[in-house]
Design a protein around this nucleic acid. Sequence first.
DNA 1: TTGGATGCAAACGCTTTGCATAATT
DNA 2: AATTATGCAAAGCGTTTGCATCCAA
Lengths: 124, 124
Amino acid sequence: MPSKTKQRSSILAALKNIDQPVTPSELLNYASINSPGLGIATVYRYLKRLVASSQVRKIEAVGVPPHYEIIHKKDHRHFFVCYVCEKLSAIKRCYNDFKDLLIDGYKIKSCEVIIYGECRECST
Amino acid sequence: MPSKTKQRSSILAALKNIDQPVTPSELLNYASINSPGLGIATVYRYLKRLVASSQVRKIEAVGVPPHYEIIHKKDHRHFFVCYVCEKLSAIKRCYNDFKDLLIDGYKIKSCEVIIYGECRECST
DNA sequence: TTGGATGCAAACGCTTTGCATAATT
DNA sequence: AATTATGCAAAGCGTTTGCATCCAA
């Protein structure tokens, strides 16, 4: 079953199943269930393609490693980083556009909002 | 003049003079003018302290290396990344808070907005 | 048979750390 | 004298790349 050419579909399926930001190594672990022997290089190579083709979003936040997640529509999302448990999570989809932030002559392609604080579990 | 213990003041002065997001190596170059022989390790070590003490903000955006900048008040800023020239810049200070994004039980400490697109120079 | 996909290991670049030295108190 | 700061070089770590192999068309 783990034919050597079905690695990409395992990676993509993993991304869709998780539907939350994940790190490359987390993705490797998850996708390896269906694709034993999958290499980290393949994960990185495919993620790069997916980002380039706007199927996947790369999220870089302070204090946590880069995360990746499936893009559903032309949405953007807000992310939350807890500085106690150091976890990154998507907090909601948001269809607001940020035209009020527009500056003359600048063309907005996408927008990323990252909120840092303390999550519910760590607040109590 | 370049006594071995005035390195930190050179680094801090450079950050204040620039007053724009810079990479560690850019900061090294700039601070080295007043502190020849300054090492990159000292820059990283001091930046870490400054971030920990909330004097400096670290900005991580997709496609560009991490940048650092002086924090002026309890402001937050919006950043713009041009995907053509691949430069990151601060576009304005913003004193809005993001209470509308608040979720029950979450405590917001800070918020970062990064806009990706095409800058004025690259649009023309 | 030709081109793309993959795993492995080496290479890479940024960041951190160990250690000896030097400055500060 | 003890503590802290520094430069250098080595180590770390995540990511990329070269290359031989494997698979698909």
